[in-house]
Write a protein that binds this DNA or RNA. Structure first.
Lengths: 341, 341
DNA sequence: CGAATTCATGTGAACGTTCACATTTAGAGT
DNA sequence: ACTCTAAATGTGAACGTTCACATGAATTCG
């Protein structure tokens, strides 16, 4: 059906290897021959069979992104489109395929699944965007010599783990600090599930800000959400119903911030009049907020870019320097924060 | 390095074909042999090389989703996570790979790119979620016998085109009708770019609702946006500044509706007090709206599911009935609509 | 009990490339 | 013109599977 390298060779009156060279190393061919071959390629509308090429090369020009979420969980996930699109574009530029996996983990953890994908040559390497990952999985992945990059700092600091992340500790610190500097003394942290590294980081920055200012943490609240609008709203409601409610909120992301605003508005409060809010991270949700959220700018697009760049490089060459990068963040002041009155 | 089917055979004391059978047709083997082979597979931690298998089978167990958007355009796209996750899960269930493509079209249209992906055996078929597609591209795709499914009805009705879409005409009709039934006589349609099929559909439903009610369309406004919050807000502002502004809005999706609400609120208007809003389609954005939007429920998840199901089936078997499906929609009444006063 | 039949396994070739090496052709240099 | 080297092209084998067929063992039946 489809034409092969042999058909092209026959038509051009050369051997199959010459056709192969025309594709992979044109300079090694006599210009006249090259022209003949190219003409034959066009005439037959020949396209090299990547499967055969991969087999002969023992190479897999493909990277996978693994994000274990259900459709329901993805429904409000604006992190995903940014990350996957940025990886996808980077792959396209390097003639790599980009595969997506959203499967839930098997009961024995992720590594079985990853090993399978890699050993079956379905992917040459993996980018893992996991809410959390077990040490055992990591150790096993490293042991299997599977190339992988984590998006999100792992909870432990193994020498050989490659990862990129935004500086969540610093983000939380800057957010909290900003509020404390405005005179707030009772700040609430709207965090994620306590088991996540993200939550640990946010908490660390939160505490450090209080510490650096020498303010007692007696009225520093920490609430945990499942990163949905509904849970943020609910947690915020509980906080506002306290006898001594917080006057400001640091929220893990801007979807949570929207939940917090809703809770405040329902109680007749206004932002930033009665409640100040800073988003410790920022994705698309905040763009529709009113008033505009003061937030910590975290270049999520960068994450995908760095991860795929590292992944592709380390698939092509063996020797890549370790990727263990925490991206800097910066405060962007908008109008959801005000001095504490 | 990695073990092959031959290694397994040698260890188990059988031929390579027997190992192959153990994997692909276990019943054809003597139970004792099967057990021996399985043990060897486990001992060697053998994983079949999918690349080699695909080559031998002349099969490509992989489908691609093509969505030509930039990172910036994806930033607020909640349609994408739902679609891609639902396709992805369906692929996983059928042991298919799922590849993502976000590249912009070449100047001569999409079909060159698609042909390349298909003839190179990178994908066995494509799901295309394009804002719009040229007839020439479609014709060329069909001519090339590339299996593909469109998500979104194409502007023309070629017999051989496979597609799924939600019933945008009906959605728009129901939304408009609902508002007219509530007594509104001046409804605005916040649509997309006029060149899109989506916009045509919305307009058709919008007009038909007026027609069916026998209401003159003198005060029926149509505004075009680029499907962003900002443009919806801006268009809505212009509408509200008219001497005879609309009392209700049908918005193409709920992100636009949020933009409309913002414009209204800025003018001291309230929803649904002074302005009623219905979303003709619904994705995640509306979930944070206050008041909750009355909307037309469109099962976007279904779209991905139907498309991938059809794609996978038609890659595996030749003879698939045509997929030309328009999914029904239904009105969900919430609190963004009120009687016209 | 021998031939016919079924069941179980093995063998060569093929899928479409590229690699390593062999061979041919062309381009000098004296 | 004649070797010597460099450039250009061709050939067999390999990548790891599966397919089509061949072979051999076990079962059935008259």
């Amino acid at each position: 059906m489809a034409s092969t390298i042999n058909d092209v060779g026959r038509l051009a009156g050369v051997s199959r290897q010459t056709v192969s060279r025309a594709l992979n190393d044109p300079d090694s061919l006599h210009p006249t021959t090259l022209k003949k071959v190219m003409r034959a390629i066009r005439m037959l509308d020949y396209h090299p069979n990547i499967t055969a090429r991969n087999l002969a090369n023992r190479s897999v020009r493909s990277i996978g992104l693994f994000m274990p979420f259900t459709v329901e969980q993805m429904r409000h996930n604006l992190f995903f489109p940014v990350i996957s699109t940025s990886i996808c574009q980077h792959c396209a530029e390097n003639d790599f395929m980009f595969q997506l996996f959203t499967a839930a983990p098997e009961e024995e953890g992720f590594s079985g699944l990853f090993k399978k994908l890699y050993y079956q040559k379905k992917v040459g390497g993996l980018i893992l965007a996991l809410p959390s990952i077990k040490t055992r999985d990591i150790v096993e992945l490293i042991g299997s010599r599977i190339p992988f990059v984590l998006i999100g700092r792992p909870a432990f600091d193994l020498e050989l783990v490659h990862y990129v992340d935004v500086d969540n500790v610093q983000a939380s610190y800057m957010a909290t600090r900003h509020l404390l500097d405005l005179g707030h003394r009772s700040v609430a942290l709207l965090s994620a599930s306590p088991s996540l590294t993200l939550s640990e980081d946010l908490l660390a920055g939160f505490r450090k800000a209080y510490e650096d200012k020498g303010i007692p943490t007696g009225k520093a609240y920490v609430a945990h959400t499942d990163l949905t609008f509904g849970s943020a709203r609910w947690e915020m409601e509980k906080l506002l119903d306290l006898t001594d409610p917080p006057t400001a909120v640091v929220s893990a992301d801007d979807l949570l911030a929207l939940g917090a605003v809703r809770a405040a508005e329902e109680r007749g409060m206004s932002v930033p009049g009665n409640l100040s809010i800073v988003c410790a991270t920022h994705n698309g949700w905040g763009d529709i907020a009113h008033p505009k959220f003061t937030y910590i700018a975290t270049g999520y697009e960068q994450l995908g870019h760095l991860a795929s760049n590292h992944m592709i490089s380390s698939i092509l060459k063996q020797d890549m320097p370790a990727l263990r990068q925490i991206l800097p963040v910066r405060l962007v002041e908008c109008s959801s924060t005000a001095k504490c009155n």
